[in-house]
Design a protein around this nucleic acid. Sequence first.
DNA 1: AATATATATGAACAATTATTCAATTAATCA
DNA 2: TGATTAATTGAATAATTGTTCATATATATT
Lengths: 123, 123
Amino acid sequence: MAKKDQMIEKCDCDVIHDDIVEQVKEKMPEEELLYDLAELFKVFGDSTRIKILWALDTAEMCVCDIAYLLNMTQSAISHQLRVLKQAKLVKNRREGKVIFYSLDDEHIKQIFELGLVHISEEE
Amino acid sequence: MAKKDQMIEKCDCDVIHDDIVEQVKEKMPEEELLYDLAELFKVFGDSTRIKILWALDTAEMCVCDIAYLLNMTQSAISHQLRVLKQAKLVKNRREGKVIFYSLDDEHIKQIFELGLVHISEEE
DNA sequence: AATATATATGAACAATTATTCAATTAATCA
DNA sequence: TGATTAATTGAATAATTGTTCATATATATT
């Protein structure tokens, strides 16, 4: 954090690298898009949220049931559900006093599965 | 952090939810696996690392070129490359004074692409 | 050997974040 | 209306993390 706004000079380790840098620059998505992508993965980067998402992939659940399942306080779960909702990963509906949460994205499971492939490949 | 080891009681919002909790429990991967998955996504959850990975998807690059490309200090890049290497996402080879980094995983791009799909779908 | 360069590393600091605790809101039911 | 319950919210705290700065290591060159 607190990145200073400095100008990084080219190294002179090999002039040929100029080509590579230019080539990479062209193929890179926009700065903002990559930032958003990092924000999305940041949401996945917490085991409580991963568990919630994985649970909701099986069934719609209310807050207290998630709390019971994960053995955590309602408050903690509620805070995390808010993060997930802001990221448009879950949605909810009210039924009386109870609020049911469910997944709001098709790709979550696929992303998780790919992640698991990577993990299981580490020797 | 600092999660207290407390016992969360079942809510009595509806006794039927017992079934759901049991069903979800059965389908959930092991605690440890989900933890590792979160750790992986934590690595993706930083825009500097995302940029590095995206850059390396186009071409093998040395540390100073990455630093120049992203306009960040060599030190900052080096620290992040260490994180990426520990997560087995990049590998490196030395050529004289210069150390070249490249991707060490087939799935990174796929995971990123899926993430981008989610982002672009948000209305 | 001495110097220069590319990279790595460790400590420090600022910023971010996950959980807890206490209080509040919203709905139900007596 | 008052009591109960499910969920949300805000502040506080502890832990984690990304960058900087100074220093160390490794290779090449003179």
